[in-house]
């Protein structure tokens, strides 16, 4: 059952998302780029969420290492899962946007490259979680990896920035007025969507844990129960 608080969060999220969609599609088009610029309202918020989600994963990781409470590990994992989706979305939207504007799917813009690497870091993080069966071990390894990766991300970004400064000047176009407002609305909508997904995923993870606990409590499968006295009677002769 969804709690009333979560219900309100979901209703608010739906309202804000609808508002952002309507606004994003109806606001005046960019003077130079035209309608294609509207994809910015997906690309920028998605990229923002990628970083926010990974930040939350780090908070969960640090908190787990300090308290050893399962809730924190679930938060880290849930946020990373959602983060990888948004990172993928940011990259995809960026590529769709880049094609008509720059004539190619990909440019070596620092934020883009960093986001792409973030995608792989997330994938590695989730792969690591999948590879460990024991919950305590999984939480421990994932927490360390999450924190180490987080410390490295700004260095990755800065290194690409410097690398680029040697090759070409950075092009940063500014937007203002109604376009800026729309972008902020879109960011808000994405953040609400993230919050809803996170709360749903956390609830699901909690239920998974409960199910696991119930399974353990229900069956007295203590070590050794899998082995019984050998008997050769059931073996047929060929």
């Amino acid at each position: 059952m969804t709690q009333p608080k979560a219900r309100w969060l979901e209703i608010t999220a739906i309202v804000v998302v609808i508002a952002a969609v309507v606004r994003g599609l109806t606001v005046e088009a960019d003077v130079t780029q035209g309608d294609v610029q509207r994809i910015m309202y997906v690309h920028v918020p998605a990229a923002w969420l990628a970083f926010l989600a990974f930040g939350v994963t780090v908070v969960g990781s640090v908190a787990w290492l300090r308290t050893r409470r399962r809730t924190w590990d679930r938060l880290a994992a849930a946020s990373a899962e959602i983060g990888v989706v948004f990172t993928g979305l940011a990259i995809l939207a960026g590529m769709i946007w880049a094609r008509p504007v720059w004539g190619q799917f990909w440019t070596w813009e620092p934020r883009l490259v960093t986001t792409a690497l973030l995608f792989f870091v997330y994938l590695g993080y989730l792969a690591l979680r999948r590879a460990v069966l024991d919950p305590e071990q999984r939480a421990r390894r994932a927490a360390i990896m999450g924190i180490v990766a987080f410390i490295q991300i700004p260095i990755v970004y800065q290194s690409v920035n410097w690398w680029r400064s040697l090759h070409q000047t950075s092009s940063r176009n500014s937007i203002d007025g109604p376009l800026r407002l729309t972008l902020w609305l879109a960011v808000l909508a994405f953040t609400f969507a993230y919050a809803v997904m996170l709360s749903r995923r956390l609830e699901l993870a909690r239920l998974e844990d409960e199910l696991e606990q119930a399974r353990l409590a229900g069956t007295p499968d203590v070590a050794g129960a899998a082995i019984t006295a050998p008997t050769l009677e059931g073996v047929t002769r060929g």
Binding site: D134, P135, Q137, L216, V222, A223
Partner: peptide, 10 residues
């Protein structure tokens, strides 16, 4: 003690 979902010591 339980490891990876199997109970070893109760």
């Amino acid at each position: 003690l339980s490891i990876g979902g199997s109970v070893i010591l109760t």
